[in-house]
Simulated scan of single mutants.
Amino acid sequence: MVHSPVGIRSIALSFPTIRRTNNYYVEKYPELIAQAEQKGLARMFSLTGTPPANEFDMEMLPYLSDPFRGTIERWVLSHEESSLTLEYCAATDALNAAKLSINDIDLMIVASVWPEQIGFGNAAFLARKLGLVGAAWNLDGTCGSTPVVLQTASALVRAGEYRNVLVVISCSYSRVFDEQDTVSWFLGDGAGAFVVSSMEGNQGILGTKTVHTGALCEVVSAELTKDEQGNSRVRMQTGNGAKALRETAAEFLSICCEGAIASAGVTLEQIDFFLFNTPTAWMTRFCTRLLNINPERTIDLYPLYANIGPVLTVANLYHAAHLGKIHENDLVLIYGSGAAGVASASVMRWGNVALALHPLESSKLAKTVF
């Protein structure tokens, strides 16, 4: 099938102002460090005395002696920040990089993990803040949202329904996990945005494969609680399905990547660069091992950001372009997946994508909290 060229025109990232290294937790919660192997993070990623059963286990094995499971640092929201403030910064930077105004945007699609309001996504609130006149709606694929939103936006532009679609992705794990829950140690916050428009020649999205991740519905759960001021808040907890992450990782990766490559009409060997979401320190090594590709053909951002959910995919694209690892007309494969959501891969021919200035390079507000 021949598609009209539609793809990413610009990309921007936005991060909170607080950087936390592992020392913060070591000094503040020494008793949790001592008991780490009995806590949530260790239970989620553990072999429980059994030998490695698959490629995921094999790559996870070297990290099991580390209470942080390979996490080095993460960026978290301050009291003055929110997912909406991060989304607003990323959205305006993406527009500026594309040399567009908000009046040039026909549609905005927002994926927030998690939104600010209980029961409502961020789309209408962000649209009001940006002054958007056109359409805006939410899309939820949990941590696999980015490839699905890109697929949706590209299809709508290709169909002639909209000209320019602004996609905004955010993750605010620090607001839904308690700091004393060791699972929060491998989580961070952030936002990304990109503009989807018509492209040149044969650039843009060439093929996508998406499947649901119903097998992972028990990995996490949400409950409504009250904070100290009596306000309602959502709190996430790990469930009994963590083992399913290890058992299904290979299947989801293979089905989606092989399906997207076939849909694009190319081969694995023709892909110039691979961008996997990296929610764990060993995910990149797992993906390259399973697909049997050279690790130099991908990038690993986990040491910089920890697990920032669907924003990882946007950050991967940004950093790969910023570091000169992908160039115009390269074939690029992106993959993202999330519990109780979707796993999805897309193959695109990279265009002339404008990059906003990285916020952590330009901001003087960032501070280290030890």
Rank of each mutant, 00 (worst) to 15 (best):
G160F: 12
E55G: 10
H79W: 08
R74E: 06
G192F: 04
H319W: 15
A315G: 09
Y318K: 10
S337Y: 08
V168R: 02
V133T: 15
C257G: 08
G341Y: 01
F370R: 15
N138M: 08
K325D: 14
A124V: 13
G265L: 09
I271S: 04
Q237F: 09
L100I: 07
N54F: 09
S172Y: 01
D93L: 08
C143M: 10
C89V: 10
A53E: 15
L107D: 09
S221H: 10
A222M: 08
L130K: 06
D189A: 10
L139A: 04
M348T: 01
F125N: 12
E361P: 00
L107E: 03
M60T: 05
F194E: 00
S337C: 03
V353I: 13
V311P: 06
W282S: 09
L301R: 12
T278G: 11
A366H: 14
L245C: 07
L245N: 11
T284C: 15
E200L: 02
H327K: 05
A264C: 07
Q237A: 07
A127L: 04
N164P: 02
N231H: 14
Y63E: 11
V196N: 04
G341L: 00
M1W: 08
Q117T: 15
T85A: 02
F177A: 07
G70T: 05
V176D: 03
R235V: 08
S83H: 09
Q38M: 11
L132T: 12
E55V: 13
E228L: 15
V220M: 11
T280L: 07
L268A: 06
P62A: 10
Y318A: 06
R74C: 07
L95F: 07
Q35V: 00
Y25S: 05
D93E: 14
A191P: 01
R128H: 15
V347W: 05
T225W: 04
S4H: 02
S4K: 11
D106A: 08
A53H: 14
A90F: 05
T208N: 04
E247A: 11
S4Q: 07
D57Y: 07
P295K: 12
L61P: 00
V369R: 04
G204N: 01
I299A: 04
D300C: 15
C256W: 03
E116Q: 13
R163K: 09
F186S: 15
A153E: 04
Y305E: 01
G70Y: 10
S254E: 01
T21A: 04
V195F: 10
S254A: 05
K364S: 15
A124D: 13
T21F: 05
L312D: 09
L224A: 02
R349D: 10
F276L: 06
A366K: 03
D57E: 03
A249I: 01
W114T: 15
F273R: 04
F15L: 14
G144C: 02
V183Y: 02
F252P: 06
E228V: 14
N352A: 12
E269S: 14
E31C: 02
I118H: 07
E228R: 15
A345P: 00
G338Y: 08
T225P: 00
E179H: 07
A260C: 05
W75Q: 11
N277Y: 02
N352R: 12
P295I: 09
A250E: 06
S344D: 05
F186H: 13
R163E: 05
T225K: 01
L206W: 02
